[in-house]
């Protein structure tokens, strides 16, 4: 969909890409079994969580041009659904993730149905409102600790052997890879062309036969579900979940900054942005302090918006021309 396809060699087929992604996951998994230092898994989890969030955001924000400021809401709902179900029934993590994704997909459906008739900036404002409303609701949900938060017991061992953090890392690896594969598949399917048409000119897209409303709602459901899945393992990762950590400003800002820095037109942009920005932040946290993180992200984002509005991928493509 990047347009240079007719000139360059044919792009990799969807099936081939899924196979490569599976192979990549397998290799990381095998390599991970040699790692004994849990810090690697902690740091890796954060990077992968951002790959997942940035990719999920970009399916709607990058492909369709609908900017969602409500990432934190979906992410936090995923985390709290998982906390609640864990407390109530003690379900295994994969089931909690599916539940978080399902609930967030449903919320995406409701929000999409209600707000996607609004175009552009009004949609964005509505998503911001959603974040505020959910935070208020969850802060008053006593079963999961309300404003005080709740402790979640993290098992010491994961079901695959190794520490539970290692298990969380592999889980996030799988989710992130899956999300990237889904994003790339969407991008190259009819839906990808329909979303690009919506982003460029919605009335012209309708005139060309694109069912814009249906496509936007479906995309919001998919994007929301992936964000919910990203939040579901969080309680076990942090072991103490309260509204400020679930509705973290850093999550909301990073999820938008990462695709912008990497480039929003294709699947690879959010991946590059997420890896780069989370490494920069991790490095800053270790070497300077955790307080400069968001400042750094803000500065990088401003830099890209003014100097390279199409992100790193835009810069690379520009050079090739």
């Amino acid at each position: 969909m990047t347009g240079d396809a007719p000139l360059s060699r044919p792009p990799m087929g969807t099936l081939a890409f899924w196979c490569w992604a599976a192979a990549f996951t397998g290799v990381v998994y095998l390599a991970g079994r040699w790692v004994t230092n849990d810090y690697v898994f902690f740091a890796g989890y954060i990077v992968l969580q951002y790959v997942l969030l940035a990719t999920a955001w970009n399916i709607l924000g990058g492909y369709a041009g609908y900017v969602n400021f409500g990432t934190a809401a979906f992410f936090a709902i995923g985390a709290y659904i998982s906390t609640a179900l864990n407390k109530w029934l003690g379900l295994p993590l994969p089931v909690l993730i599916l539940a978080g994704a399902a609930v967030c997909g449903l919320i995406g459906l409701l929000m999409g149905g209600l707000t996607l008739k609004l175009q552009g900036v009004f949609f964005s404002i509505a998503t911001l409102a959603l974040a505020i409303v959910t935070q208020a609701l969850i802060t008053n949900w006593e079963y999961v600790g309300g404003a005080a938060g709740a402790y979640v017991i993290r098992p010491s061992r994961g079901p695959l052997g190794g520490s539970y953090v290692e298990y969380l890392f592999y889980t996030m690896l799988l989710l992130a890879t899956l999300a990237v594969c889904i994003a790339r598949t969407v991008e190259r399917s009819a839906a990808g062309y329909g979303l690009a048409a919506i982003r460029d000119d919605e009335a012209a897209a309708e005139a060309a036969g694109v069912p814009t409303m249906k496509l936007k709602v479906a995309t919001t459901v998919l994007s929301g579900a992936l964000m919910g899945a990203a939040g579901a393992p969080l309680p076990f990762f942090v072991t103490y979940l309260d509204p400020p950590s679930a509705f973290n400003l850093a999550v909301a800002v990073n999820t938008i900054a990462m695709p912008l820095v990497g480039g929003t037109a294709t699947w690879i942009g959010p991946v590059i942005g997420a890896v780069l920005l989370s490494i920069v932040q991790e490095a800053a946290m270790v070497t300077i302090s955790s307080a400069v993180n968001l400042l750094l992200v803000g500065l990088i984002m401003i830099g890209f918006i003014t100097l390279a509005p199409n992100g790193i991928m835009g810069l690379l493509r520009g050079r090739r021309r």
Partner: peptide
Amino acid sequence: RSFQLPRPFGSLTVAENLRVPLLYA
């Protein structure tokens, strides 16, 4: 219909602009 003031899909190539109605209409 065609629009009086052309409203092409700016991020797509010329060929891809036709691909949208070919896929959807």
